[in-house]
């Protein structure tokens, strides 16, 4: 039984990890096409930095991811507070809408937003991308923060209100400080989600605003590009670091609160 399990797990994890490992190895491979191991090199990393189009797209992607993560975290915090701490008409409908947004396949959201932007006359570029990214990150940030609010003592807020605190004081001085680990975790999560998105970005950006996934997609459509290997290695490392930090932050919450 144990041997069978070990073999099974090894095969599956091998399948999941081998391509990533091959990619990382190839980003240090002197052979341009990764057909054989021609020795260790770091040349693809400067080559990547020298690729102006790729760097421009990377800069754009980081700008969108940074802004979208910040906005989605703030909005998600407000949504979590609204859904958990307040009772109001239409709460369940709004919650249902949020869950539907989370369940909906990216491609549906992508074209629905594209149709919206075009009909409203929003020009396709940074702003359309930002609005779209905030929208698809929002359910995830809200859920992360709601989970933190779950263990929250509501009497704390009542006590503050009884002592004469205004609602904004209650939120600013009690709720937000208590939420901070969840806020950082959800920011990292949204940042990763935004940086990883291919489908929504390919629909809602315009020709003048190139983003990383689209640039990579057009570069690798025809074959292997060593600069892309180098960049991919960096991206894998970045998402690994971000996930570990966010998991540690969420873990801390379980011990702390």
């Amino acid at each position: 039984m144990n041997a069978v399990r070990l073999i099974y797990f090894t095969l599956i994890f091998g399948y999941l990890y081998l391509p990533i490992i091959v990619l990382i190895i190839n980003s240090f491979n002197a052979n341009r096409y990764g057909l054989s191991w021609d020795g260790f090199t770091l040349q693809w990393f400067p080559a990547m930095l020298a690729n102006a189009g790729l760097m421009e797209a990377a800069k754009n992607s980081l700008a969108v991811a940074f802004s979208a993560a910040t906005a989605a975290t703030l909005l998600g915090a407000l949504a979590a507070i609204g859904f958990r701490l307040y009772r109001f008409a239409g709460r369940r409908i709004l919650q249902g809408t949020l869950m539907t947004l989370m369940m909906a396949p990216d491609i549906i959201l992508a074209i629905a937003l594209l149709v919206l932007f075009v009909m409203l006359g929003v020009s396709l570029g940074f702003w359309s991308l930002l609005l779209a990214h905030i929208t698809f990150c929002l359910p995830f940030t809200t859920m992360t923060i709601v989970a933190r609010l779950q263990g929250f003592n509501p009497f704390l807020l009542d006590a503050a209100r009884d002592l004469g605190a205004s609602e904004s004081q209650v939120l600013g001085r009690i709720v937000l400080p208590l939420l901070s680990p969840a806020l950082i975790a959800s920011w990292l999560l949204a940042f990763t989600l935004s940086l990883d998105d291919v489908i929504v970005s390919s629909f809602v950006t315009g020709p003048s605003f190139d983003v990383l996934p689209l640039k990579i997609f057009s570069m690798v459509k025809v074959g292997v590009k060593p600069e892309v290997n180098a960049l991919s290695t960096l991206m894998v490392a970045l998402s690994l670091v971000l996930v570990i930090i966010s998991q540690l932050l969420l873990k801390e919450k379980e011990h702390g609160a």
Binding site: L23, L195, D196, V198, V228, S232, V236, S239, L240
Partner: peptide, 12 residues
């Protein structure tokens, strides 16, 4: 892998 860019993984 779920957190790693899916386009990069497809390329891989």
């Amino acid at each position: 892998p779920f957190w790693t860019n899916s386009l990069v993984r497809t390329y891989a």
